[in-house]
């Protein structure tokens, strides 16, 4: 009897499973399309001829192929300076930030350090309370940081969140390694450079990548602190100016908060040029992403949220 009743139930489960699998696969495929389409579409438009692209209707492939937009973009002065400064700030900013965060994490993860809890608390507070935009601006002005390159590097060098992630990782390294090195006469700096740091490569890589992406994508600090000083503009800020010309004009308004403050571009930049600039700006991230993405995920699972 039990066999008889089991059979139809199993069959019902199997069809239910099949329906669910089809439904789920469809959702996942749709999700992937929605994620990738805007990027691929912009890529196609960027390779299309300018006046033809205005007609619209370009999807995944350019209709009239042309490299002219890219040629125009890489000749634009702001873009060239922006690219140089962005590369520079990404390299210098990432290196200095990595060293600064690692050293603080090292100190905070030493079990014998006398001011451990005090120093931890000092930095944890910075995660919750911050002075805000205007006091920070006033401070930077009195430190003469405004209008310089260093305003990108120095203020954000130490981040309490990154320090907490690194500290957790370092605290997991057995003390015996440190102790035996110290017995052989190694000082704290030798322990940091020769014992701890080599073991921390994965977490260093993760933090370095996060900081690098942050620097690559920054634009707001460029707008706030180097708006009048085009020498230190960044790539993303230049892109923002290109795109803002459309937001302001396209909607026929006098410009909102965004365009009121920096609507210096009077003419609408063609969509192909904007697309080419967008693609160039995200190209390094997309190109490196497949190789580096696993580091990003390990970073999340190492410290942050698990703790």
């Amino acid at each position: 009897m039990s066999i008889n009743t089991m059979k139809p139930k199993k069959k019902k489960m199997a069809t239910e499973d099949l329906i669910f699998t089809i439904f789920n696969t469809t959702i996942m495929v749709l999700f992937t399309i929605v994620t990738l389409y805007p990027i691929l579409n912009t890529l196609a438009i960027s390779f299309n001829e300018g006046s033809d692209a205005v007609r619209g209707g370009i999807h995944l492939l350019p209709r009239v192929f042309s490299l002219k937009s890219y040629k125009t973009v890489i000749k634009t002065e702001g873009i060239i300076t922006g690219a140089k400064i962005t590369v520079l700030r990404t390299v210098i900013g990432t290196l200095s930030s990595l060293i600064a965060n690692a050293l603080l994490s090292f100190i905070l993860s030493r079990k014998r350090f006398l001011f451990k809890s005090g120093l931890s608390l000092f930095w944890i507070i910075t995660m919750y309370a911050n002075g805000g935009l205007i006091p920070t601006m006033v401070l930077f002005r009195s430190l003469n940081l405004i209008g310089t390159f260093w305003v990108y590097v120095i203020p954000g060098m130490v981040s309490a969140f990154n320090v907490m992630v690194m500290r957790t990782y370092m605290a997991g390294i057995p003390d015996s390694l440190e102790e035996s090195a110290q017995l052989e006469g190694a000082g704290y700096m030798t322990v940091f450079l020769k014992i701890i740091s080599p073991l921390c490569k994965p977490v260093y890589a993760t933090i370095a990548l996060f900081v690098a992406v942050y620097h690559w994508n920054s634009w707001f600090d460029a707008m706030l602190y180097n708006r009048t000083n085009t020498k230190y503009t960044t790539l993303q800020y230049e892109l923002q100016k290109l795109l803002a010309s459309v937001t302001a004009q396209g909607q026929g308004g006098g410009g909102g908060a965004a365009s009121q403050t920096d609507a210096t571009v009077a003419t609408v930049i063609p969509i192909t040029i904007r697309s080419a600039a967008t693609i160039l700006t995200m190209a390094p991230i997309i190109a490196l992403y497949p190789f580096l993405q696993r580091y990003f995920v390990t970073g999340l699972t190492i410290g942050g949220v698990k703790e």
């Binding site: 912009t42 994508n217 920054s218 993303q236 892109l239 795109l243 969509i271 995200m282």
Partner: peptide, 11 residues
Amino acid sequence: SWIVVCGLVHD
């Protein structure tokens, strides 16, 4: 970046 994302959304 948000700049890129907003550009994509806008298009």
